[in-house]
């Protein structure tokens, strides 16, 4: 995992540096002289070879001092705290929705297989996977904010303002979780142990709701980490559309303004989150499945 983190941090660093654009153009007024620009580059270390810049940069980050924005001189640590908190609220809400909505719908579909409820849920799930995120966001705004005027279209950070972006952000995850839950439930309903439990006199509710569901949750829990990665990725778009001042929005703004310290630092944060999610996926699989835990 550390190696993955190292490689991805290098990749992010290079990508931002190579993406072109003159940092001084963003930070200094157009009237600044060429000498002044050179001096500015030297001051922030842009004149050195890129690998030295990388080491210097990582050194600073590990010391807990990622630097400042070059457009408004805000401390990156402060920015991370503020935007991070907002993103955490939105991402956390979306993550919770993925499971709170996805799992029960999937269970329902599996228990009422081939009924209208099942067909309805599955069509909804296919739609959820097919509709692009930004389009869904615009649709939601148009429907709930413009037409019915029951929810605010944008802004932060009241509960009402949270609803639309959280649902949009969670939508694809919900759709995937519904499908996975349904197929895992159906697969496990055919297991021999189900017959044993019924022979033991347990109610269908217990057999399905406790034993089959618990077995079906193994792949779902283990892939929960991947859902984190997905949410992090989509947060870029969704935060932008709903003007939710999170990390994603800060990152997009920074890239547009060529504020490379902000862009670099926040990209790194997102990459770490995604890698962490994948690592959690592995851990989750072991946690969810006793057969993989070390036996005493």
């Amino acid at each position: 995992m550390l190696i993955v983190l190292l490689i991805s941090s290098v990749a992010v660093f290079y990508a931002i540096r190579l993406s072109g654009g003159d940092a001084t153009a963003a930070a200094l007024p157009g009237s600044a002289t060429e000498e002044f620009r050179e001096e500015f580059r030297a001051r922030i270390g842009l004149d050195k070879p890129i690998y030295l810049q990388y080491f210097a940069y990582m050194g600073k980050i590990l010391k807990g001092d990622p630097g400042h924005s070059i457009t408004n001189n805000a401390s990156l640590v402060e920015m991370l705290k503020e935007h991070g908190k907002n993103s955490l609220v939105l991402g956390g809400a979306a993550f919770a929705l993925v499971f709170l909505i996805g799992v029960p719908l999937g269970v329902l579909a599996s228990l009422r297989r081939n009924s209208w409820a099942d067909h309805g849920i599955m069509s909804f799930s296919i739609a959820g996977m097919a509709i692009p995120n930004f389009w869904l966001a615009l649709l939601a705004i148009w429907l709930f904010a413009s037409t019915f005027r029951i929810l605010p279209a944008a802004g932060c950070c009241s509960g009402k303002q949270l609803i639309l972006p959280a649902i949009v952000l969670a939508f694809e995850g919900i759709a995937l979780t519904v499908r996975m839950t349904r197929s895992a439930m159906i697969e496990n309903q055919n297991n021999d142990f189900v017959r044993t439990l019924r022979a033991g006199g347990l109610s269908e509710w217990r057999v399905m709701g406790k034993h089959v569901l618990r077995n079906a949750m193994i792949p779902i829990i283990s892939l929960a980490g991947l859902r984190i990665g997905q949410i992090v990725g989509y947060a870029l778009i969704v935060e932008q559309i709903f003007s939710w001042p999170g990390i994603g929005q800060a990152l997009v703004t920074a890239v547009l303004r060529r504020d490379y310290p902000v862009a670099q630092f926040f990209s790194l944060v997102l990459v770490v989150l995604v890698v962490l999610g994948n690592w959690l996926a592995d851990t989750g699989y072991t946690l969810a499945n006793p057969r993989l835990r070390r036996s005493r």
Binding site: N191, D192, F193, R195, T196, H211, N215
Partner: peptide, 10 residues
Amino acid sequence: DPITSLDPVF
């Protein structure tokens, strides 16, 4: 079949 007849996660 006792191998598959017991719920593996309990």
